[in-house]
Write a protein that binds this DNA or RNA. Structure first.
Lengths: 200, 200
DNA sequence: GGACAACCGGACCGCTCGGTCATGTTCTGA
DNA sequence: TCAGAACATGACCGAGCGGTCCGGTTGTCC
């Protein structure tokens, strides 16, 4: 059982780290995070052996947040709308968090918590896609992994001007989604990625 | 007039820096670049006052490469095909170069050479879009700036698995392009970015 | 061929980073 | 209430960074 002050400090730390990572990317220093949390630097390393572990925990939380939303949307009776909202939520998370994409590239292979969250995300995306395809709204030649990868497309497109144009990602997400519709479909030049490629 | 050895070393330096930045992103150390070029670290700072300047020069070269291709394609008699090839070239450059997107976000405002190259890129994209729209192939509610921003979408989408799946970006570029076609058009929720937002 | 400017190189500087550790403090259970 | 375990802290460490500088080297021009 953790002591009460340890629980409180861990909470402060997680919040501060999440905020710093979101605002400034995953290269913010531990010192800065500790200061923002109002705790000492050493305390950070009491809760997490390494900076990478801290980042992984936060990143994995974000992924689970999206998984949860996806599971709820999978029950919707408007499959196309559900898929679109899933993509909206996922893109918004990334648009708000500068560390998200960096974290995805940096530690998807090393941290097992992240690994399983990514699997769960792929699963729920697969369900949402299958539902939308069954309803005839979405082209048949795309997969759940396609959707997961496309989650970063719109937010990254606007990354260089995101401060001056918040919300612009919605414009490109709409364009991307237009490309996913059944009647937009043209043959794709490359097969979908395999689960093994995604998993790493 | 530069001395012959200085010219040769500058060439070696540029090539090595471009390769390192492309392979490892813009955070590679000057020491590493110098070693790869087979020159001393001090020599790097003889040619460029700061690391940022070196990065800017290379980044701006890449942009001009794309501008040149765009100008050629603007003369094509297949406007839709020209736009698609423009996007293909731009996306491929980014897919091959890990520093590209970082550089775009980091120094588009500070370095004037980059600034003007970005303007030229926006101009040529505007022309290509206008041509394709006049031909009726591309939806009317998008702009050249949209295209420039979308250049990063596909390459960034696959960034986390790009080593395991080279060329996968072509799949998502095709999807994005499908979303740009006239008959895919659904109303967009957000207006296009202004030139001022893009310029910074 | 010689003089001199241009150029090269790597030891060096100040700084920041992630991570450690000894010391002092605070909570908790009996 | 109090012993002792759990926890917090910030000075400290080695490594690596961008950038500087000066003694030695090399190309160039008369």
């Amino acid at each position: 059982m953790m002591r009460a002050d340890a629980v409180r400090n861990r909470r402060l730390l997680m919040d501060a780290a999440a905020a710093e990572f979101a605002e400034n990317g995953m290269d913010v220093s531990i010192t800065r995070i500790a200061t923002r949390a109002g705790i000492g630097k050493g305390t950070v390393f009491r809760h997490f052996d390494t900076k990478e572990q801290l980042l992984a925990e936060i990143f994995s939380d974000r992924l689970e947040e999206l998984v949860t939303a996806g599971l709820r949307l999978a029950e919707s009776d408007d499959p196309a709308g559900a898929l679109f909202e899933f993509m909206t939520i996922g893109t918004e998370i990334q648009a708000r968090d500068r560390s998200f994409c960096q974290a995805a590239a940096a530690l998807s292979r090393s941290e097992s918590a992240v690994h399983t969250s990514r699997e769960r995300l792929a699963d729920v995306a697969e369900t949402l896609v299958a539902n939308a395809q069954r309803a005839g709204a979405i082209r048949d030649d795309i997969t759940g992994l396609d959707i997961v990868l496309l989650l970063s497309a719109a937010s990254q497109a606007v990354l260089s001007i995101s401060e001056d144009a918040p919300g612009l990602w919605r414009r490109y997400l709409a364009m991307v989604f237009d490309g996913l519709r059944t009647r937009s479909a043209h043959p794709l030049p490359v097969p979908a990625p395999t689960r093994a490629q995604f998993t790493g």
